[in-house]
């Protein structure tokens, strides 16, 4: 079992003719992902990464029964690309693009509330069900099949924590990078709910970071609804207020909201141990799994 993606998922890659899009489409295929089409305006009729390219996502769905999109479109056009995916009634859209203007995402966010399509990202590494399929840019070789669900706001931090787990022989059901922007589609609460309802997931790792209040909301949700044991990690304990730490969303506001302390104490209050180091997170998971 897994959540959101498996080897039946039929994927259209938006932006498949660009450098990143093509490279990662091939990488995804190599991992076992069922890429069925590309969508690039003006490139219909061509072929890229061995699959047919269509001018619109709509055509890719009509012709190839795509149900999921992975978006590698440059930031200036990515908001529009996400709208196209949402308006085509796909099951899932994964936006890898970093640097989409926040106001574009606010409009996307409004549209999301009106559709059944789930959005992951933007500014995320995507998601992977080890041994089956990956949607995005995660390096497949560090993951292993197993029973831990992982959700994270950061890409490379995900790899670090997964590495700590895999090195101990602890595999993953699905790992989801939800992205580092202020406005994202799937958030911690959504991902936790998916893992809680997944029979195979026996423990969950949640990697948060400074900025916003998503981790606090997740802690409240865990307290009320999640029986699966959760271990946490929060990046940015040493970040000074008012400075954006790389991710557009990773900033402690001047009034002191979004601090690591607030997130760690909310998680602890919900019974979630928070590791001081990635190794400690793996220690907690090992304990949970007995």
């Amino acid at each position: 079992m897994s959540v959101l993606v498996d080897d039946d998922t039929r994927v259209v890659v938006q932006g498949i003719t660009g450098g990143e899009g093509k490279f990662h489409a091939e990488q995804m295929m190599e991992y076992g992902t069922n890429i069925v089409a590309g969508a690039v305006p003006g490139k219909g009729g061509q072929e890229a990464a061995g699959v047919p390219v269509y001018d619109t996502v709509h055509e890719a769905v009509e012709e190839e029964n795509a149900d999921t999109s992975v978006i590698f479109v440059p930031p200036a056009f990515a908001g529009d690309a996400v709208f196209e995916a949402l308006d085509t009634d796909l099951d899932l859209a994964v936006a890898i693009t970093e640097g989409i203007p926040t106001q574009d995402m606010a409009r996307v966010n409004k549209r999301l509330s009106e559709t059944d399509t789930r959005l992951i990202g933007p500014n995320c590494p995507g998601l992977i069900t080890p041994g089956e399929a990956k949607l995005g840019i995660l390096p497949g070789n560090i993951f292993a099949e197993g029973n831990v669900g992982l959700v994270s706001r950061s890409g490379t931090l995900t790899y670090q924590v997964v590495d700590n787990l895999t090195n101990r022989g602890i595999g993953q059901t699905t790992a989801i990078g939800i992205g580092g922007d202020p406005i994202i589609g799937t958030d911690f609460v959504d991902a936790l709910e998916l893992f809680e309802n997944d029979d195979e997931t026996e423990a969950i790792v949640m990697c948060g970071e400074i900025g916003g209040e998503d981790e606090e909301e997740a802690a409240a949700f865990i307290d009320d609804y999640v029986d699966t044991p959760v271990a946490g990690f929060i990046a940015g304990r040493t970040a000074p207020p008012g400075k954006r730490m790389g991710h557009a969303g990773a900033i402690v506001s001047g009034s002191g909201t979004g601090t690591a302390e607030s997130k760690i104490s909310a998680l602890n209050d919900a019974g979630v141990p928070v590791g001081d180091t990635p190794e400690e997170v793996a220690d907690h998971i090992e304990e949970f799994l007995g």
């Binding site: 994270s152 706001r153 950061s154 890409g155 490379t156 931090l157 995900t158 790899y159 670090q160 580092g180 990697c207 970071e209 400074i210 990690f233 990046a235 940015g236 304990r237 040493t238 970040a239 730490m245 790389g246 991710h247 990773a250 690591a260 001081d276 180091t277 990635p278």
Partner: peptide
């Protein structure tokens, strides 16, 4: 480092 989350984590570990 590479990636905001991992760089922040590296800062935190230096402090740790």
């Amino acid at each position: 480092g590479n990636g905001a989350g991992l760089v922040m984590t590296t800062l935190d570990l230096v402090d740790h």
